[in-house]
Design a protein around this nucleic acid. Sequence first.
DNA 1: CCTCAAACTAGCTAAACAGTCAACTATCAA
DNA 2: TTGATAGTTGACTGTTTAGCTAGTTTGAGG
Lengths: 209, 209
Amino acid sequence: MGRTSDANERLMDAALDLMWEESYGAVSIDDICKRAEVKKGSFYYFFASKAELAVAALEKMWRNDWKPSLDARFSSSVPPLERLTGYLDGIYTKHLENFKKKGKVLGCPVCSVGSEISTQEVDVNGKVREIMSRKRRYYESAIRDAVAEGAIEPCDPTEKAMALLCLIEGAISQARIMNDPEPLRNLGTAGHDLLRMKPGAAVSAAAAH
Amino acid sequence: MGRTSDANERLMDAALDLMWEESYGAVSIDDICKRAEVKKGSFYYFFASKAELAVAALEKMWRNDWKPSLDARFSSSVPPLERLTGYLDGIYTKHLENFKKKGKVLGCPVCSVGSEISTQEVDVNGKVREIMSRKRRYYESAIRDAVAEGAIEPCDPTEKAMALLCLIEGAISQARIMNDPEPLRNLGTAGHDLLRMKPGAAVSAAAAH
DNA sequence: CCTCAAACTAGCTAAACAGTCAACTATCAA
DNA sequence: TTGATAGTTGACTGTTTAGCTAGTTTGAGG
């Protein structure tokens, strides 16, 4: 009953795009409405605030983009080390493509926004933490499996996954700051070292120039 | 001749503090003026814009805080590996102290602001890149010395320094997002792995619980 | 103890901004 | 067909913001 609409979807997409291209604080509700071709009255019909929209937009991105992609990359049918190296190389190629296409490295919207608003927007921060820890769990289980297989030196998978997350997000952040995918090129080898892969273990494609 | 003033210094300090506690975008010129106890007219007497103030504030921080601290930590009188492990452990203890004192992990103002404004404020971005690359050069020369000494496996010091920077800044960023110094606790061991220190090489203090 | 340039101030403007609302409209389901 | 309902709209409020300026105060150097 009543009329239907995808204005809320358009608002989430517009918000995510703008916050990614610029930043959370630099984007006004008016900007988002203009991009989504939605009047401000309608915005407030669907969302109570920019923060609430941001939370919804991040969750939508996780559900529609990140989760499917991670499920594929970290499928248990793939050997654990290949999951990790393939993922690391994928980060570089993805950002390199986007850079060639748009001339810009935009980094990771979750981390950029997360770092920006961490002391201010409690709800957005909560969603950011949630997404980061979901992502970390993929790394963790791959590391656990790799240790069990004896492909990498024994370690605490939780701690290793945290360290790997830091390395990855740090590299993506530097790539954004420098507007250059270069810091991502050697993520494969850096991950190799960090994880203490055993000699003879899979080496990432990007590492071989 | 004419009267003297430290209002510009107060403005730089206030701007850096506020941008660190909150973010670049969340802080208005009025906020900065209030904190610095300076009227807005005076602000525009010294600076043309918030961006110009931010550039000056970042450079001041480098000159007064970071450079002296890095010069001490990375003094050539200290063995190269100790420079690095001491530095990594120092990051954790510093943030842990601040956390106990203020209840907050604020991360690295240069990176947070840098990631936030990278696509918008060209001049601020330039200063951020400059400071990051100065910092990286300290890592690089320590790594180069360590390789020369045979304390770590041979590598390209430039690339390694970049990877180390990514790991460090990534960990600091995660600590800010989580408001928890935990991701920094194992920076020592993670750095150890990343740098492929040779067996028997100095192990950081924090790594030993 | 002047002088004058550096530093400061109050108060203004115009734009951008978040947030509200009553009236309107399309659509579904009965 | 129609009534209930979900969605839309533009016009409005008050606030915050950046940026400016004309005039005032201060203090170092002569």
